[in-house]
Write a protein that binds this DNA or RNA. Structure first.
Length: 569
RNA sequence: UGCCCCUUGGUGUAACUGGCAACACGUCUGCCUCUGGAGCAGAAGAGUCUAGGUUCGAGACCUAGAGGGGCAACCA
């Protein structure tokens, strides 16, 4: 099936959030004297997640809206944790989300330049080589409520600092022996300004630079300068970097950039029943709590993609949650709404029985199979297309669609009651067959030949329409019923004292084998999305599904007002 | 015993930058329906953390509190 490309209404008119207002003002006043430039700066040490998607939509979105450009820059300054496999995954995810970067950049390409700035700072007396131990540096920094104290190495001469710096680069010292620090103020009220570390020695090979370097810049040092070198105008990051803004400005100014980029912070996404911490997601992967970074339960872009979520839905979601400075949690319902809203308008409907119960139509000719017309789309979806669905004497219907003693408002099948088989006939339940244990194993029903296609010539109505699959022609399939990964809205509520894996939802994946699906789907490529009528949205698993072993991932259930009815009694 | 940020219905965002709070999700009613989906119609739900102040008038401004969050990694 080919899905139409649809732009959700919520994406058509982006709301002016405070960041966009700021950019709009700067664009109008030509404050930077250059085109608006943003960047998305992931560290290649993990997969991108839904929280990154928010940032991607913001950065690329703004660039698009203001005729600017957005770079994809890998903030790869830590050789211990980064890997090329992550850069590849990140690039794929950004593209899949629908964005094109102006340039692909790497902080590791700036090492030489960054080193030159370091010599400049040292020469100016704005930075020095500290030879204290890691421990001494930590204690020397003081605490949030008490001032730090100067390092004994703080007043080395420019010459000595330069000599040491060069020898650091030359590899003369072991890890941790020396470190380059900015010379600012050890009593600064902002902890980050207490002579922050700029460059450290790391005798490790870098996934891109190999062994070319043994000194590596730290985030604060590399980030702002990278922005400045790329001509970024608006450097957007999350709230936890607010305090880093001071060092960002200090450094860019020290390095001599006249119109420095402006860093603006916004609140990161917090989604109920999920976590968005690369460190913790990595742990889920490493400890085998999930099948990998692309496990459909993961909030990663790769996981959502494999689950069947579309990029349009993710973008629409980013648009509706908006951007603000307030730390907030978003309800899962908001996300699910965008997913359903998008899928509803684009995917074909198909019949699949999750928990089959056999129905025998006693008055239907044995051995006969007829092909019934079934539309792929409901009347209110402006798409056309239909297929033939085989109908036969023996059928599967949903176990939950039959009740021997139905409560009030139960519109489905029950003894003596007539319902419509979707696209098929009206059938009436005549007899319930049970096994020795009293379990219902089969229903004997009669069908009304005059209702072929689902309408009765005499105009009689049925209250319920249920889905079904021909027992003679239906195919077996596996259904992976995914649910929220965590059992509680805020899995990180207890902080680091509480093991967040304790909050994992034990039923986040329920595998159903022996489900029955109409045969037409075998010819569709893996990765095809459907709505299984009355059940939910599904996508055939792109890696495990094959014609001889169909596997479908549940993307999201349909809204179910019936559960509310029974909940109320 | 510090610095910084935040505080609007259940949730997320708005409010032309001072003129009696809007949109979306969710919830509830009803209608409609060959998906108990979708759609349609409607409803409930905050007086904007608190207390002062400025003003004819404040969610927006000022002051003081309270509550929440961030910062003491040679992580980003």
């Amino acid at each position: 099936m080919n899905e139409p490309v649809i732009t959700p209404p919520s994406e058509q008119a982006p709301r002016k959030d405070f960041v966009r207002e700021l950019v709009a003002a700067d664009a109008a006043s030509a404050r930077f004297g250059r085109t608006i430039a943003t960047r998305f700066p992931p560290e290649p040490n993990g997969f991108l997640h839904i929280g990154h998607a928010k940032s991607i939509c913001l950065n690329f979105g703004i660039a698009n809206e203001y005729g600017g450009r957005c770079n994809l820059r890998f903030d790869d300054t830590n050789p211990f944790t980064e890997d090329i496999k992550y850069v590849n995954a990140i690039k794929e995810d950004v593209r899949w989300l629908g964005f094109a970067w102006a340039e692909e950049r790497y902080a590791s390409d700036y090492f030489e330049k960054l080193y030159e700035f370091a010599e400049l700072l040292v020469t100016k007396g704005s930075a020095y080589v500290d030879s204290e131990s890691e421990e001494a540096i930590r204690t020397g920094r003081g605490t949030v409520t008490s001032a730090g104290k100067d390092s004994p190495f703080r007043n080395r001469s420019a010459e000595e600092n330069l000599d040491l710096l060069r020898r650091m680069r030359a590899g003369e010292f072991a890890d941790g022996v020396h470190v380059l620090r900015a010379k600012i103020d050890m009593t600064h009220p902002n902890m980050i300004m207490r002579d922050p570390l700029l460059i450290r020695i790391r005798k490790a090979s870098h996934y891109r630079r190999g062994d070319a370097w043994c000194i590596y810049p730290l985030y604060d040092y590399a980030h702002g300068l990278s922005d400045a070198m790329e001509g970024i105008t608006h450097s957007l990051c999350t709230l936890e970097f607010k305090d880093n803004n001071d060092i960002y400005r200090w450094l860019v100014r020290e390095a001599g950039f006249d119109i420095p980029p402006e860093q603006t912070e916004f609140a990161r996404l917090e989604l109920d029943y999920t976590i968005v911490s690369k460190r913790k997601l990595l742990r889920l992967v490493n400890e085998g709590h999930v099948g990998g970074w692309d496990d459909p339960r993961m909030p990663t872009i790769a996981g959502l993609r494999r689950r069947g979520v579309t990029p349009e839905a993710i973008r629409a979601f980013a648009s509706t949650i908006g951007v603000a400075r307030k730390e907030a949690r978003t309800e899962l319902a908001t996300f699910e709404h965008e997913v359903r809203n998008d899928l509803n308008m684009r995917v074909p409907r198909v019949l699949c029985v999750v928990k089959p119960l056999k129905v025998v139509l006693t008055n239907y000719p044995e051995g006969e199979v007829e092909e019934l017309d079934a539309s792929f789309y409901p009347h209110d979806v402006p798409l056309t297309g239909s297929r033939k669905v085989p109908f036969s004497r023996e059928l599967w219907i949903e176990r939950d669609d039959f009740m021997e003693a139905p409560p009030k408002k139960f519109f489905r099948l029950a003894p003596g009651r007539e319902v419509r088989l979707r696209y098929g006939y009206f059938i009436t339940c005549q007899e319930v067959i049970k096994d020795a244990a009293g379990e219902i194993v089969e229903l004997r029903c009669t069908y009304d030949p005059a209702t072929r296609g689902g309408d009765s010539p005499d105009g009689r109505k049925v209250q319920g329409t249920i889905h079904w699959v021909s027992a003679a022609r239906g195919l077996d399939c596996e259904l992976r019923m995914y649910d929220r990964l965590f059992a509680v809205p805020d899995p990180e509520a207890g902080g680091d004292d509480v093991d967040f894996t304790k909050a994992l939802n034990p039923t986040s994946l329920i595998t159903v084998s022996g489900a029955k699906i109409e045969p037409g789907v075998v010819t569709d490529a893996a990765g095809t999305r459907y709505q299984f009528e009355r059940t939910g949205y599904f996508m055939s698993d792109p890696v495990d599904s094959r014609p001889d072993r169909l596997v479908f991932n549940r993307t999201v259930t349909l809204r179910d007002s019936w559960v509310k009815v029974i909940a109320k009694g």
